[in-house]
Design a protein around this nucleic acid. Structure first.
Lengths: 210, 210
DNA sequence: TAGATTGTTAATCGATTAACAATC
DNA sequence: TAGATTGTTAATCGATTAACAATC
């Protein structure tokens, strides 16, 4: 295990490598050089080799990389094979969309519960899972080991929910609440769709193409 | 106008500043120092001052920054005031969620059309807008100036849609198709929710908290 | 005025790129 | 073997942090 932590810049490129390698695999491409990949992805070959070598040497001089092997290795590094249970908290528009739209299995997770407060939604089924009331959360978490929660509830309720879930052993959060959250010993992936949209707005408004 | 392009690292922090300043404004805080803000946001005061000074001096020695003024300035820099028309292409789960969930007005956009191919969805209304068939796209774009498109259609259809829209003058794309797209003279904000989820998976699987 | 805090220059740190010996 | 391409070290580039004079 590479003990000396890999920089986040590198880690954030791994899923992208994984995607491109998956595509090559689908097209029955057996081998790829860092140069091929660099042209496809718009990176330098040097960076690609540096990135891979953070985790060990997966290539072979004079040959390049075996696509299937490299794809598997990166999948393992990302932890996609140790499937972790997760729940979805907040079954509004966005929550329902994520529940239906995201392929959790292929990203290392399994959705095992959905929770909301609204009586209109509780009892309904989303992607084959019946929505329960948020008050039932602790019941489920007693019986089933849940490691991650997707936060799509309104801002105001989210902090309370987070603390309850951490108390139950949840140690990862995919947070769509439009709020930066941090907690000791727990991982947050804060997604800010609004920020992303404003960044696009900036680029379009301050148009200086190179 | 700051002609010498500001680095993307800085630009991506602007929406976050905007959010925090908006919060301070809501709490009737009139002034803030770079030190206050740095503690709130988990950045260094030095970085904050450097960032702001990419766009000019908004502060006052010995006093700090006027919250309302700074908030407005950053909004202007982001271009949130020149509201640009946009359309949504693909009214599946994710498209519907974005149409209903995102506050476009506050992010510099106005949603003026929604398109899909499915006969089950065409004719239905989302957030007050009637979904039209994708074949009607060019009709709307002839009458109304549309600058940005949100791409939530399936991968396979997306490339074709992009080329049609560019031909009609669309020059910004908020792309959820799970595919990196680039085109000369046009801006793409590629959102990869799957990559974000895999990054979280990595952190949880390779747990080495500091 | 004295204290506070900016704007800005210089120093440091980290990430990317280039180069090349090792080797398949 | 000769050619290709890696793994890795060294050089460069850019972004962050520190320091401090300017000034409100």
């Amino acid at each position: 295990m590479g003990k000396n932590a890999v920089s986040m810049a590198v880690v954030r490129r791994l899923p992208r490598y994984y995607r491109y390698l998956g595509e090559l695999l689908n097209n029955d491409v057996a081998r790829v050089s860092s140069k091929d990949l660099s042209e496809k992805m718009g990176l330098t070959a040097s960076q690609i080799r540096q990135d891979f070598n953070c985790f060990g040497g997966f290539g072979q001089q004079g040959y390049g990389y075996n696509v299937e092997l490299l794809h598997n290795e990166i999948g393992n590094i990302l932890g996609l094979n140790e499937v972790k249970n997760c729940i979805l908290v907040g079954a509004g528009n966005l929550g329902r969309a994520l529940g239906n739209h995201i392929n959790f299995k292929r990203r290392g997770f399994k959705l095992v519960g959905i929770f909301d407060v609204s009586e209109n939604i509780v009892g309904k089924s989303i992607g084959g899972i019946v929505v329960q009331h948020v008050d039932e959360m602790e019941h489920l978490l007693q019986d089933v080991k849940v490691e991650m929660a997707i936060l799509t509830a309104p801002k105001e309720e989210t902090i309370d929910i987070v603390d309850r879930l951490i108390a139950c052993g949840v140690h990862g959060f995919w947070n769509f609440s439009n709020m930066d959250i941090q907690r000791e010993g727990v991982y947050f992936e804060n997604v800010h769709l609004g920020d992303s949209l404003m960044t696009l707005c900036y680029s379009m408004s301050n148009d200086h193409h190179d």
